[in-house]
């Protein structure tokens, strides 16, 4: 095997190894190699990166470009693309009540997931952060739903939620509480809420594990100091732990949001988007149009819209919420407290 030193054009071509290494180090300090194009480096980089780039080009870039192309045509999946319809697919997607409903459902799921899972996740993470017996087992258990496939978990939930004969309706009946006649998933007004409950069950573990990791980054000294000052347990959490968990919470919420916007599997198993389109999401919409009705143009337009919605929300989130974590000493709009506040690195 030839060594890097013998590379043609490399600045270190004719020097002994020690100096070469030192040169390389100096070059890296400067951040960039001086002198002509380093052919060998270019070759090596290409060799190493090519497989990944080829895979991504064929299976991500190419399909995405095709989706954009198809979104301007009326195409049923066979024959040449010739029926150019301009923006008409977009118009029919954006004016479709079903799609508008889907976008609304996605947004409701985004907000509800965060609103339900964040407080519950914090509570359970606090619980697991204490020295209680069986803590390790608890941590494993809380994460089990996250590991199961959405489909498999969904199939079990469908059984639990069976109208009348399901375990949930039976228990409610035993408590003297009424259940909807069509079942929780079969009643349009309740279906979306039911889906959200199941999703929260499935993804709560993820929030707990991440928040727990964040909590372990909070130095014990801070809570101890607060307790010595006489702060109660909850006061300590509220004023010390939670604020320091900010970056973890914001990043988790971001992941949760992205997941909710792409939601497909669980809805498809629980309701297929029904009843009466009460639980459609953008993903179930585009699959129904594409697979069931072979409206590839419409489905493609819907996937472009899905991408744009996700991108815009991601950028907004990045700009207004995550940016707090990236700028350390930005002049804050809120007045800085006079007394020195501990700045600890979380997560």
């Amino acid at each position: 095997m030839t060594t890097a030193d013998s590379a043609p054009g490399a600045p270190s071509a004719q020097v002994p190894p020690l100096e070469a290494a030192l040169n390389a180090r100096a070059a890296s300090r400067r951040g960039r190699r001086r002198g002509g194009v380093d052919v060998r480096t270019a070759l090596e980089v290409t060799l190493f990166v090519a497989p990944a780039l080829v895979l991504m080009a064929v299976f991500i870039v190419w399909p995405v470009l095709r989706a954009v192309q198809w979104s301007f045509f009326r195409w049923k999946g066979y024959g040449p693309l010739e029926d150019f319809v301009g923006l008409r697919n977009y118009v029919s997607v954006l004016t479709s009540e079903v799609f508008q409903g889907a976008v609304l459902h996605n947004l409701i799921i985004v907000v509800a997931s965060i609103a339900i899972q964040l407080p519950l996740g914090l509570l359970i993470a606090l619980l697991l952060n204490r020295r209680i017996r069986g803590r390790a087992a608890l941590r494993t258990i809380i994460f089990v739903p996250y590991v199961l496939a959405e489909v498999i978990a969904g199939v079990v939930w469908v059984q639990l939620l069976q109208p009348q004969y399901g375990i949930i309706d039976q228990w409610l009946g035993a408590l003297g509480l009424p259940s909807p006649e069509q079942g929780w998933l079969g009643t349009p007004d309740l279906a979306l809420s039911t889906v959200i409950v199941v999703l929260s069950w499935k993804y709560l573990g993820m929030a707990v594990i991440l928040l727990l990791a964040g909590m372990q980054g909070v130095p014990d000294e801070l809570s101890e100091a607060a307790q010595i000052d006489g702060a109660s347990y909850w006061r300590t959490q509220w004023h010390i732990t939670f604020p320091l968990l900010g970056p973890t919470m914001r990043t988790w919420a971001f992941l949760s949001m992205i997941g909710s916007l792409q939601l497909f599997d669980m809805v498809w198993i629980l309701t297929k988007g029904g009843p009466a389109n009460a639980t459609t999401t953008m993903a179930t919409f585009l699959l129904t149009e594409g697979q069931r009705r072979s409206n590839y143009g419409i489905a493609s337009a819907a996937s472009v819209v899905l991408f744009v919605v996700a991108l815009v929300l991601a950028l907004l989130y990045q700009r207004f919420i995550l940016s707090r974590d990236n700028t350390v000493d930005r002049p804050a709009k809120t007045p800085r407290p006079r007394r020195s506040t501990p700045k600890a690195v979380t997560a």
Binding site: D229, G230, R235, P243, N326, V328, P337
Partner: peptide, 24 residues
């Protein structure tokens, strides 16, 4: 991850509780 200076939330909104209130 960089530390966000948690400016607002760390300052107690109410004055710190008395020592008497907080003993046990």
């Amino acid at each position: 991850m960089s530390a966000a200076a948690p400016t607002r939330d760390l300052t107690p909104r109410r004055p710190a509780p008395d020592a008497a209130e907080a003993t046990p």
